[in-house]
Design a protein around this nucleic acid. Structure first.
Length: 934
RNA sequence: GCCCGGAUGGUGGAAUCGGUAGACACGGGGGACUUAAAAUCCCUUGCGCAAGCGUGCGGGUUCGAGUCCCGCUCCGGGCACCA
């Protein structure tokens, strides 16, 4: 530490000392001015102190255990923070500060997920470059976070839009591009190690290159994608729902796009969820999204082969036991066999249906699905059911999805609701091959499909077998006959990774035309590939990315052309937790040594909205980096907690009337007032109309957003932090209530007066010697017991992340520690300030300093509770009769059960309630309760 | 429709293992201090006059259920033609 900083601190101290002197001298002259809790001065002072002393710097230290506690870093929007952000940040900060005091080497970083559409839109509206706008927003976000006193190691700040950061995002992309997934070893390997089949090698270097390109984890794919005309951008499957919800149209449209082969990792992404300490709902959503199904692949041969390459249709089914009931087949409209098997007389109808299906929006299809409507056309082709040889018609319909299974199904209308609906619509035969167990096989199969497990009927060699056994038997038979095999499929699809936007990471790739006319993609050797300057950020209507307008940047002197798509916003957030470990490394994204020390993230807190997208993508990249030897853990985030939402109030008219455009009429908090000070009833100020309160997610349009700056200005950061945690359990959503903030502020004021004023109770003796240094063991026994109970309670509750109840334990301490006439033990106050430190660090430091401690308490050891003081000489015993509480007795610790029983039976209340009846049985719960049964 | 959560005073919530339901706080009522107000402090506050009744509803297990089991209702979140 430099002498300069020492001097500045020496200068910072006098106001504090002066304040205390003033307080004491004022009391001596019995004027007694109110000692004010000047949180503005206190918070400003300690925030600069922490900055100047680098109090929260973390460095790799193999001698100490590490703890990595991470927030989901924010997108720095123009609106600044709302009070929802600091909820999770406060929780992680409490844990970070607590773990530091527990002796852990704590990594607690913050950064900016700063690529994204809003900055680009802002640029189109105002002409301000996204980089300029982003920098402004970051300044504001950082200022706001700093005023809240979070113990981040700001030297590790990262910004995903900084070329020094995205250089490594590009580098990781090239790792994926340069790798393939080896299913035999179930891991990624360098693409150079990909075995090239002899027949490919024989075709020459171009064929080998194409073969390699087809196996890379990042690959170009020409296929229908989700195109959003309004945004002029393609969307990942995972992103479609969000935009559709906003009312935007998303259509399928063929485009050539970069994909990530996340499907290769489906099984590992699924099974590795097992060891994670994550919320059940997130685990569930990930499992669901990966969507593993166990079943069989079955080959149906075509009856009349018009085309030698189209001899059979492969289907996937989870119900091979129902094969005897397959009465028709359906191909997805995009299925490659459709053109080849369609007979001439059906060609026109099929072509029309395919054309319509490919152009229909996702939304229309979903609407049909919701109504159970099925459409489709017959191809004219027939296939042979391998189980019974029956000739079944082959249809096409958009209820069969090309992206799942084989893009073709065997339809069993008797036992599948969708097939049943289609069969009824198209008048196709329905047969029953599964009977109700014990029900004599009867089921009104014509009316509804029977999709429950049962027992096989009308199924030849399967008859009589329960569903599970019939599945096994059928798979064995198919495998023996060479007609099919066991197969596992996943709903997970490959990740569409390119976007037609400006404000994102450029792909570090160059396209070159080869002599044989192919498009060869080669990596850029020198990273980063920085974004070119651009005046017009709009993609073209046809989907040409904005970067294609930067011709000088795109066109290279050697004839190559740069890739003009950019990466999706997820790219930067996929690995930021890794960069935090080693943020200024310019030789690698992070060192293996740093990774080995800091990984995994021990606690990760953020919103539930990232349950699938971010958390699945980050896990995928992490696994690839694991396979390639860059990290040593299989999973990035060991423990995950989703904080709830902070809700804001809006007010609705009693009749719930709507505006002409259909939107609900709402009143903002500023437009209403309560009927009376105590009233829960609200009315519109202007008209006096009565309205109902409604609590919603905060949003600008609802006008119910609370700005942390206002709360910090009025009450201070410590109050803000405390209230965020006191609202309720971290995982719960809760309304923001200004009255509750004031309650937390009052607690801090009491704590302040306890330390500085000596008049917390208003009745106790006050004076300079009240804060006496008492010899160890002296002071009130009651006070010492209260202190140690508080230490035990706060510690255990932080461990459980039950912050609201930890705060209530501290409130009790401040309320009860000093009774009239009692002095306050200096050590008790010192220990209390340590307990308070994770929650209200500024005030805690202030008290600690006032007690004459020379250093910050940030690294002070956490207080230990004395077990002996947690047990009282007597305990209250509840006496129940017939399970109803009737009396409470003070019992000394060592009393025997027999003594306790006779004491209880002798007590007047018990005698009265027994009313002469004799106890039949007495149940004693040691230290707690005695239940008398009569 | 399916999956995952949840439901406790006027309000946010507490009760970690089946053992005193309502900690702590807000709000309300009363009081002290004050010329007054604010601030602060103290008392009180689940419902009921009471016996009693009370943790969304109906059953059950248990000496004892907010907690466990069965069947529902409602609210929130997710998924949704995935064969």
């Amino acid at each position: 530490m430099s002498p300069g900083t020492c001097r500045r601190n020496a200068q910072a101290a006098p106001p504090l000392a002066r304040a205390r002197r003033l307080a004491f001298s004022a009391r001596a002259s019995s004027v007694a001015p109110p000692m004010t809790y000047d949180f503005r001065a206190i918070e400003a002072r300690w925030q600069s102190f922490w900055d100047e002393h680098h109090s929260f710097r973390a460095d790799v230290d193999p001698e100490r255990p590490k703890y990595y506690v991470l927030d989901m870093f924010p997108y720095p929007s123009g609106d600044g923070l709302h009070v929802g952000h600091p909820e999770g940040y406060t929780a992680t900060d409490i844990v970070a500060r607590y773990k530091r005091m527990r002796g852990f080497n704590v990594l607690h970083p913050m950064g900016w997920d700063a690529f994204g559409l809003p900055a680009e839109r802002y640029a189109m509206q105002t002409g301000v470059h996204p980089a300029v706008r982003t920098a402004e927003c970051i300044v504001n976000f950082k200022r706001q976070l700093k005023t809240l006193g979070f113990s981040y190691d700001w030297e590790r700040e990262v910004d995903t839009t900084d070329p020094r950061y995205y250089k490594w995002t590009q580098w990781i992309f090239l790792q994926l591009w340069g790798a393939f997934y080896d299913p035999t070893q179930a891991r990624a390997r360098p693409i150079d190690e990909l075995p090239i089949p002899a027949e490919i090698a024989a075709q020459g270097p171009a064929a080998v290159r194409r073969y390699r390109d087809d196996h890379r984890l990042a690959y170009l794919h020409d296929a229908p994608v989700n195109w959003c005309p309004a945004l002029r951008v393609v969307l990942a499957n995972e992103e479609v729902a969000e935009q559709v919800e906003k009312g935007l149209v998303v259509v399928r449209r063929p485009m050539r796009q970069w994909m990530m082969r996340i499907t290769a990792y489906a099984e590992r992404l699924l099974t590795d969820l097992e060891g994670l300490d994550w919320p059940a709902s997130v685990l569930d959503m990930q499992r669901h999204w990966i969507g593993r199904s166990d079943g069989a692949e079955v080959r149906f041969h075509l009856v009349h082969q018009h085309d030698a390459d189209a001899s059979a249709i492969e289907v996937f089914t989870t119900r091979p036991d129902t094969l005897f009931g397959a009465t028709y087949m359906v191909l997805a409209p995009e299925h490659p066999l459709v053109q080849r098997i369609t007979t001439p007389e059906h060609a026109a109808a099929v072509a029309a249906y395919v054309e319509r299906a490919t152009r229909r929006s996702e939304r229309d299809r979903q609407a049909d699905a919701a109504e159970g409507q099925k459409t489709g056309v017959f191809t004219g082709a027939f296939a042979r059911n391998p189980a019974n040889g029956a000739h079944v018609p082959v249809w096409i319909s958009d209820y069969v999805l090309m992206g799942y299974g084989t893009g073709a199904i065997m339809a069993v209308p008797g036992h599948d609701e969708r097939d049943h609906a289609f069969a009824r619509a198209m008048a196709l035969p329905i047969v029953q091959v599964v009977g109700v167990v014990g029900g004599g096989g009867a089921h009104p199969i014509a009316d509804a499909a029977f999709s429950e497990p049962g027992v096989a009927i009308n199924s030849g060699f399967l008859d009589g077998l329960p569903t599970a056994a019939a599945k096994q038997r059928m798979i064995e038979w198919l495998e023996a006959e060479g007609l099919g095999r066991r197969r596992v499929t996943y709903k997970l699809r490959d990740w569409l990774f390119s976007r037609q936007r400006y404000w994102g990471e450029p792909f570090p790739l160059i396209h070159r035309s080869t002599p044989d006319g192919d498009d060869e993609v080669v990596p850029v050797q020198e990273l980063p590939v920085t974004l070119p300057e651009l005046a017009d950020f709009q993609p073209s209507e046809t989907g040409e990315p904005p970067l294609s307008k930067a011709e000088a940047w795109v066109q290279l002197p050697d004839g190559g052309r740069r890739e003009t798509n950019t990466m999706p916003q997820w790219a930067g957030s996929c690995w930021y937790y890794l960069r935090f470990m080693d943020p200024s490394n310019d030789a690698a994204p992070f060192s293996r040594a740093a990774a080995d020390y800091w990984l995994p993230v021990d606690l990760y807190i953020g919103g539930a909205e990232h349950a699938v997208l971010h958390l699945l993508y980050a896990r995928f990249w992490h696994k690839v980096l694991f396979d390639l030897g860059h990290v040593g853990t299989r999973e990035p985030f060991q423990r995950l907690v989703n904080q709830g939402m902070v809700l804001g109030a809006t007010y609705l008219p009693k009749d719930r009337r709507r505006h002409a455009d259909g939107s609900a009429v709402i009143f903002k908090p500023a437009e209403v007032e309560s009927l009376a000070p105590a009233s829960d009833e609200w009315r519109v100020k202007a008209t006096g109309e009565l309205v109902d309160v409604q609590w919603d997610k905060m949003s600008k349009s609802r006008g119910n957003v609370v700005n942390p700056d206002d709360v910090v200005t009025q009450f201070g950061a410590d109050t803000m932090r405390l209230y965020e945690m006191f609202m309720g359990p971290l995982e719960h959503s809760a309304p923001w209530q200004t009255d509750g903030v004031a309650g937390c502020h009052r607690f801090l004021q009491r704590a302040y007066r306890l330390a500085f004023d000596g008049d917390a109770s208003g009745t106790a003796d006050s004076g300079p010697d009240r804060l006496r240094e008492l010899p160890p063991g002296e002071g009130s026994d009651r006070q010492r017991r209260l202190l140690h109970r508080t230490i035990a309670a706060v510690s255990e509750r932080i461990d459980r992340l039950a912050f609201n109840t930890a705060i209530s334990a501290m409130m009790i301490f401040v309320r009860d520690i000093v009774e009239p006439g009692e002095p306050l033990h200096r050590d008790a106050l010192a220990q209390f300030s340590l307990l308070l430190a994770p929650f209200a660090p500024h005030l805690a430091e202030e008290i600690w300093r006032a007690l004459g401690k020379p250093h910050s308490l940030a690294h002070e050891p956490w207080p230990a509770a004395d077990e002996a003081l947690l047990v009282d000489a007597t305990f209250p015993l509840v006496v129940q009769i017939q399970g109803k509480r009737r009396a409470e007795l003070a019992i000394s610790q060592g009393a025997s059960e027999a003594d306790i029983t006779s004491l209880a039976l002798a007590s007047p209340e018990v005698q009265r309630h027994l009313a002469g009846k004799t106890p039949r049985r007495v149940i004693y719960v040691p230290g707690k309760l005695l239940n008398i049964v009569v």
